[in-house]
Amino acid sequence: MEFLRPADWEEALAAKAEHPSAVPIAGGTDVMVELNFDHRRPDVLVDLNRIAELEEWEVGEDVVRLGASVSYTRVIEELSAELPGLALAARTVGSPQIRNRGSVGGNLGAASPAGDSHPPLLAAGAEVEAESVRGTRLIPVEEFYTGVKRNALAPDELIRAVRIRKADGPQQFSKVGTRNAMVIAVCAFAVALHPGTRTVRTGIGSAAPTPVRAREAERFLDAALEEGGHWDNGKIIPPSVARRFGELVAGAANPIDDVRGSARYRRHALTVMARRTLGWTWEELRGRGDERSERCA
């Protein structure tokens, strides 16, 4: 095994071009588990820890450009206002120790359907900035996930950053696990209200081979909100609409039975989470107090 330590981004891209099978390692929270348990023996590891620009983020007019290695802890501490859904999801990732090392870039690279950052990225709207010596391309996050633990990166590409739309309305994230902390998602759901475009976007995790949006649910809700004039009158969303939204979210999932949970339960939990998170975001939009889960003073 070779261990490459590129000093800057150009060197990293060159290394990846030279060794397309090389496994990039940043926070190590996925790769090292595979190494420790003999699940993977890559020929080459490329350490991305020394590349400073991967640890940087910038907030633009509409988009946050999040360096691939920015830790979850920093997302929580520094970007909760711009990326509230992602920050909520980040708080549920593994343990504090994992959150100090793990990053959204790593989550995308691993492309596990259970990755916690995928649903809020889908709900907010995001593009993956993939780069190689050949150049840079932007991959819409919906197109980034291509299968279980597979993504759209070419063998010579690395993730430079994720461009996530700044929140223009309330966002929520909720995940089910059978423990109250440090748990992998049985299933997860994110919702983002976009009052500017009068749309609602969603993201489902751990309930299909890839993270997915519940597009039919989004369309249904967009129409229902429009029809009821909700964006203008701010009225409470009728329970029947919220329920139907939940059912359509569950319908978008394609879950399996596994050791973490049954397919039926996953569908059921999605209906509940979708209904609840929609309620929380809508209440927040209506200004009825901050329903986000904050610590008590």
């Binding site: 909520l88 708080r91 549920t92 929520q172 994230f173 909720s174 995940k175 089910v176 696990g177 423990r179 109250n180 902390a181 748990v183 998602a185 509940v272 989470m273 609840r276 929380w280 009825r288 107090g289 901050d290 329903e291 986000r292 889960s293 904050e294 610590r295 008590c296 003073a297």
Partner: peptide
């Protein structure tokens, strides 16, 4: 229950996973 209208998820079922603010 927090002093305001919020809920501390750390004391609720689901914990940090933010599954309920008291519902159910």
């Amino acid at each position: 229950l927090c002093a305001g209208s919020g809920a501390d998820v750390r004391a609720l079922p689901g914990g940090l996973s933010n599954t309920t603010h008291g519902e159910g």
